[in-house]
Write a protein that binds this DNA or RNA. Structure first.
Lengths: 260, 260
DNA sequence: CGGGATCTTGAGCAGGTTCAAATGCTGTGG
DNA sequence: CCACAGCATTTGAACCTGCTCAAGATCCCG
């Protein structure tokens, strides 16, 4: 009825209060305008220089799929047939102990690639669950290998992207192994802030697409501890929260708490 | 004087009580006999099939270097010029918080590649310190890129190896986020056991090249907790320790404790 | 053989967990 | 459109695992 709903019908849903992400029609290919730095576009950019080979995006853009909250992109043990580039929305990935405990290994937003860990074993060893309405591009492994042979930039970018994932994981290991609850939550919020900023969302005001329970699981602390630290941060004037809406008031002080 | 010392003089030192690793003379290239599955050899193997292209090993075998306990392979911030393949010995890698806390991210033994995380940023974000006398092959990035262009198996194996590193890190995150002290130490010992077995060392009797303090740091628990769990495991008949010499008596029960 | 490093064990402490309960959203079906 | 069920969030209180501090034992290197 009102303006928001009209938008909803026309485009993939975004979170309220968010600046709109670059829109694209259903059959539109990746390009600098429609999808400035989605994972696929990044794959096709020359490492040193502005040139872009768009053969890959023009092929795989046909494999676009829409997922709803709770859907699984892939399951543990499933053979690897494709990797996934997120166009908009968000997804959590996690691994399991054999007695069923879960560790969330990442929250992923537009522009990020999923499934790279499966290349070693040809099977997924983690699971990916959609947190909100999300659109992904499916990149069949065969296509990826073919283009990797042909296009040098795809080859180099694949290495870069996997290397970046190794770096991100190192940071999380540092957090899980050596940081206390305050440092963990501050680090988490700043990481989100930076990633939103990089894609032109507000770095200080955003919605969390994941529950307190998910945040706690990811950070290796209890859900209740997440709540308590949020409350304390709010009392100290560092931020304001209203359910999943977060507003960061003092990035500097958060940085001091996070301790790299 | 006695037999052991004669060996020591002739070859790179190994730990007492260890079955000898495949030896090679100083100028000998990688080959199935001398270095059955060192990282470089693995890089050059066809993904599906037995064929091996030995151009890369024959080139980089000239860049062999010997390190002593405490030496650094690379430092945080240093530009990436080469990656390293361990021929024999062991190395720890770690990252730091900006207030100096350290998190060990891995212990690496013969056959493993180091430095892959630096490809994303062209600089090392972790540091590598040698735990015992260790020989590595240095693979200049330029050479790697050249061979990666020319030899398909190098390209595919690079992806596989980086993907495997992502998997290993996921396992460590699960450990750091969700396991208790007993589960952590059991998981650690079984991981070592499997890796030793893969390279034809004894899976049940081996030396640790790292201190209790390093183990604790890696597992996210205090040094003292490592000692206490070792003591308890020994009292329960799971294993026997004598300083850094470990003998595992009951892999099944350890597996139950570790909980995948 | 001496001294620093490493390992081990004990005792008290604390950060974070677990359990429990109240409150507030959300979305779903009638 | 509303009621209700179920889930998410928040807060309190008791508890516990693993930490810190301390000291002794052992090893290893020079």
């Amino acid at each position: 009825m009102f303006l928001g709903e009209i938008h909803m019908a026309a485009v993939v849903q975004t979170m309220p209060g968010e600046p709109a992400f670059a829109r694209l029609a259903d059959n539109e290919a990746c390009s600098p305008v429609t999808c400035r730095d989605c994972g696929i576009y990044g794959l096709c950019r020359e490492v040193n220089g502005p040139d872009v080979d768009l053969r890959l995006p023009e092929t795989i853009v046909r494999n676009r799929r829409l997922f709803k909250r709770g859907d699984l992109l892939y399951r543990i043990g499933e053979p690897l047939r494709a990797i996934y580039a997120i166009r908009c929305g968000s997804i959590k990935t996690y691994v399991l102990t054999n007695d069923g405990r879960m560790q969330i290994t990442g929250f992923h937003i537009a522009g990020e690639l999923l499934g790279l860990g499966a290349i070693a074993s040809d099977r997924f060893t983690s699971e990916a669950k959609v947190l909100e309405t999300t659109m992904v591009c499916e990149v069949p492994i065969d296509a990826l290998e073919a283009y990797s042979r042909e296009i040098p930039s795809v080859r180099q970018q694949m290495l870069k992207i996997m290397s970046q994932e190794i770096l991100d994981n190192q940071e999380l290991m540092l957090l899980l192994g050596k940081k206390n609850a305050d440092e963990r939550l501050a680090t988490f919020l700043l990481s989100l802030s930076r990633r939103f900023k990089r894609r032109s969302y507000s770095p200080t005001k955003f919605n969390l697409s994941m529950s307190r329970s998910d945040i706690g699981n990811y950070l290796g602390i209890a859900e209740e501890t997440v709540c308590r630290v949020f409350t304390r941060f709010q009392n100290d004037g560092l931020l304001a929260t209203e359910r999943r809406q977060v507003q960061l008031h003092d990035l500097d002080r958060l940085n001091n708490i996070a301790r790299g």
